[in-house]
Simulated scan of single mutants.
Amino acid sequence: MSIPPSPPTPAAEDGSGLVERTWKATEHNIDVGAFFAMLHRLTGAPTCKTRSDDAFTFARSMISDDRNHLWTGTGPDGVTVDEKAVPEDVQVWSHLAAYDPDAPLDSPYAHTVDWAAGRMAATDGPFTGSAAAPSTPAASGSRAPPTSWPPARPATPPVTPLPPRR
């Protein structure tokens, strides 16, 4: 499904200069979900848990049909999934924000990092890292993932838990 371009958005008529945006971004919902999850952990406030859950519900709704990556969000209608872009940051942030060391493969985002690493790796001379867009033939028409991927993973450092709430 093709998403029409966003029409020009007029500034608010109240003189504030604010502009209404109707699209929804996966990365913003991951950020909000993680923020309110931390606030809930620190304060125990049920409202924080509800807000975190709502944000992660949206993020989970952006998981691709093959369950391997997340889409960038919605188009201007706030409903249609925008499949034109697959940003690397949401693949990693989703996994980091929702990671549970007691059940690492139970995360709905368990495969997003590997998917991004295998499709968004780039080499430029002596430098190797993440590209801004997938390098699969389907995405670019010419490049393929590096054949040496994934590299050996270093040992995971221990996580220091937050101090108990007082």
Results as ranks from 00 to 15, higher is better:
residue 50 T to A: 13
residue 14 D to V: 08
residue 47 T to R: 14
residue 35 F to I: 10
residue 41 R to N: 14
residue 87 P to A: 08
residue 53 D to T: 11
residue 3 I to D: 06
residue 11 A to E: 13
residue 76 P to I: 01
residue 94 S to M: 05
residue 46 P to S: 08
residue 98 A to C: 14
residue 44 G to N: 02
residue 73 G to T: 04
residue 1 M to P: 15
residue 92 V to E: 08
residue 49 K to L: 15
residue 98 A to T: 15
residue 94 S to T: 03
residue 13 E to Q: 11
residue 9 T to I: 09
residue 61 S to A: 07
residue 107 S to T: 15
residue 27 E to D: 12
residue 118 G to F: 01
residue 52 S to I: 02
residue 58 F to E: 05
residue 85 A to P: 01
residue 55 A to P: 06
residue 8 P to D: 07
residue 57 T to Q: 12
residue 31 D to G: 10
residue 82 D to R: 07
residue 38 M to D: 11
residue 79 V to R: 10
residue 135 S to P: 04
residue 97 A to V: 01
residue 93 W to R: 06
residue 30 I to H: 01
residue 7 P to R: 03
residue 68 N to I: 00
residue 7 P to C: 00
residue 88 E to H: 09
residue 20 E to A: 13
residue 90 V to W: 04
residue 43 T to V: 01
residue 20 E to Q: 14
residue 135 S to N: 12
residue 90 V to E: 11
residue 127 F to D: 06
residue 114 D to H: 15
residue 105 L to R: 12
residue 126 P to T: 05
residue 109 Y to W: 13
residue 18 L to R: 09
residue 70 L to V: 05
residue 5 P to K: 08
residue 30 I to L: 13
residue 68 N to D: 13
residue 8 P to G: 02
residue 81 V to E: 04
residue 33 G to C: 02
residue 89 D to Q: 07
residue 80 T to K: 02
residue 115 W to Y: 11
residue 32 V to M: 08
residue 66 D to W: 09
residue 78 G to H: 05
residue 134 P to A: 04
residue 26 T to I: 05
residue 106 D to K: 13
residue 73 G to L: 01
residue 107 S to G: 09
residue 118 G to R: 12
residue 14 D to W: 08
residue 67 R to K: 12
residue 24 K to P: 05
residue 95 H to C: 11
residue 6 S to W: 03
residue 133 A to L: 15
residue 62 M to R: 06
residue 91 Q to K: 08
residue 28 H to I: 07
residue 103 A to K: 15
residue 65 D to L: 09
residue 54 D to I: 03
residue 123 T to Q: 14
residue 66 D to T: 07
residue 108 P to T: 06
residue 135 S to M: 13
residue 86 V to M: 10
residue 132 A to G: 14
residue 101 P to G: 10
residue 107 S to L: 11
residue 3 I to Y: 03
residue 31 D to N: 12
residue 85 A to K: 09
residue 136 T to W: 05
residue 86 V to A: 09
residue 54 D to K: 10
residue 122 A to N: 05
residue 47 T to C: 05
residue 104 P to C: 12
residue 79 V to I: 14
residue 49 K to M: 12
residue 100 D to K: 14
